[in-house]
Computed example of a mutant assay.
Amino acid sequence: MAESRAQRIRVVLTLAQRQEDTAAERLGQYRDQVRGEEEQLAQLRDYAAQYTQDYASQRQGIYAHQLMNYSGFVARLGELCREQEAKLKRMQLTLNKMQEQWRQCHQKRKSIEDLIERFKREDAVLLDKRLQKELDELTTQKFSRIPSRDE
């Protein structure tokens, strides 16, 4: 018997599944990178807050050059935080694009699965009709061979 449409399209489904799996894997890895960058930003903020708090508690007897060094260091920490925030925004945009790519791959795979199911249903209906036709023909042949009582 010839290969059904549902069986022939399984190759396409396999390829779509691979694409979805690859997209999901890349998405997961990138999410991990984003989390790492978020943790780094949190650590920078915590360090800046702790440094400011520690330095504020030691304000007595500070020399001008120490105050200038402190101000410069705090300014650099603020700059690093802003750079990290900008990096995270860019990464979030990339993450959103990757999520959309995965959604498209997922939807494509689901559509192919739905198509396969539709083909199976259609094939089953055709098979039922073919079987019914064969049964009808056999029944007709059987009754046409039986002589009637009138003869």
Rank of each mutant, 00 (worst) to 15 (best):
Y63G: 14
Q53S: 15
Q50K: 15
Q53F: 02
Q19E: 15
S57Y: 00
E39T: 13
R35K: 04
D54L: 13
Q50T: 15
L27P: 04
Q53A: 14
R5A: 07
I62P: 01
E83W: 01
R59C: 04
I62E: 09
Q66I: 01
Q40D: 09
F73V: 15
L88Y: 00
E25F: 01
Q17R: 10
Y47D: 08
R10C: 03
V34G: 05
C81I: 15
S4E: 02
V34I: 14
L67I: 11
A6P: 05
R31M: 10
Q19T: 15
A64K: 11
Y51C: 05
E37C: 04
A6C: 04
G28S: 13
Q50G: 03
L27G: 05
E85I: 08
R59M: 14
E37D: 07
A16R: 08
Q60A: 13
D32Q: 12
G28P: 03
D46P: 01
Q53P: 01
F73N: 11
C81N: 03
T22N: 12
D32S: 06
A48K: 09
G78M: 03
A16F: 02
S71I: 14
A86K: 00
L44R: 08
S71E: 08
Q17N: 06
V34Y: 00
Q58L: 10
Q7L: 08
L80E: 08
Q29V: 08
L13K: 07
Q29F: 04
R5P: 02
G61H: 05
I62L: 13
L44A: 12
R82V: 06
E79I: 09
E25I: 06
A16T: 12
A86V: 02
D21R: 15
D54E: 14
D21M: 13
L44H: 04
E38A: 04
Q66M: 07
Y70L: 15
